[in-house]
């Protein structure tokens, strides 16, 4: 038996919004420690790694490890049927071929359940090596989202250049060019608004705007984001989901010809 309950359906909706741009379907691996999802997009340019801890749920039970392959468009249809403040319970029997979503309104006057067929997805599990990054940037997630959106008007790529002075995001194309520089801040009063850089050595890498914009769909999950970069390895964009887990996106850099 698997059962996981969240007081707010809105949280699950946000998690789904954060992955459905990149993935059409995904396997949710459930164990007694929580729910994990790891999948590359179809072009093998980006990877999504989601972790939701068992103790982050209001109720969590997983008697046997279970992999639930879900079509994310179908899951989206079902979650649209929930109000954000409904409680959601995800249930499945061991070896089940379907999963049930139960939505309960605040006052319990409305209880609805939706059953969805599970898919057998032939997904490989990947070992992600531990990397000592040359630089790690922590910044407000809304600011990162804004920068990605603004720069994608100019070109298909963003160059991220990190030095001890700060981080520069640049893009150029037919209409011209754009540069956004962020300096490190030392505003302890508003910790949420700070930009901080842990730098071992300067790094400059180029990434596709399209993927960065997809990653920023996780912005409603967290008001902070971190960008970890080293030369010639994938960028890691991480959003901590408060009291529940994290979502990490890996993106292969563009290669100069």
């Amino acid at each position: 038996m698997f059962e996981a309950r969240l007081v707010s359906s809105g949280t699950l909706k946000k998690v789904l919004d954060a992955i459905k741009d990149l993935l059409n379907e995904a396997s949710f691996d459930c164990s007694d420690t929580g729910i994990q999802l790891q999948a590359m997009d179809s072009s093998h340019v980006s990877l999504v790694s989601l972790s939701l801890r068992a103790d982050g749920f209001d109720k969590y039970r997983c008697d046997r490890n279970l992999t639930m392959g879900m079509n994310l468009a179908s899951m989206t249809k079902i979650l649209k049927c929930a109000n954000n403040d409904d409680t959601v319970t995800v249930k499945a029997q061991d070896d089940a071929d379907c999963v049930t979503f139960v939505f309960e309104s605040k006052k319990q006057e409305k209880i609805s359940d939706y059953e969805m067929k599970l898919m057998n997805l032939d997904q490989e599990h990947l070992g992600i090596p531990e990397t000592d990054f040359s630089c790690v940037i922590h910044m407000p997630s809304g600011e990162f989202s804004r920068i990605c959106r603004d720069l994608s008007q100019f070109g298909e790529s963003v160059i991220i250049s990190c030095t001890k002075e700060g981080v520069r995001f640049s893009s150029s194309g037919d209409i011209g060019s754009a540069n956004i520089k962020l300096a490190q801040t030392n505003n302890i009063d508003k910790e949420e608004e700070t930009v901080s850089i842990d730098l071992q050595e300067p790094v400059t890498l180029t990434f596709a705007c399209q993927y960065l914009n997809s990653f920023t769909k996780a912005t409603p999950l967290s008001n902070r984001v971190s960008l970890s970069m080293s030369a010639n390895v994938p960028l890691v964009v991480e959003y901590e989901i408060p009291d529940l887990g994290h979502i990490r996106y890996y993106l292969a850099p563009k290669i100069e010809e």
Partner: peptide, 14 residues
């Protein structure tokens, strides 16, 4: 000009 890299090769298949 630049080409899009892929993730294959960065991660080990378990």
């Amino acid at each position: 000009t630049s080409t899009q890299g892929r993730l294959d090769g960065f991660f080990k298949v378990l």
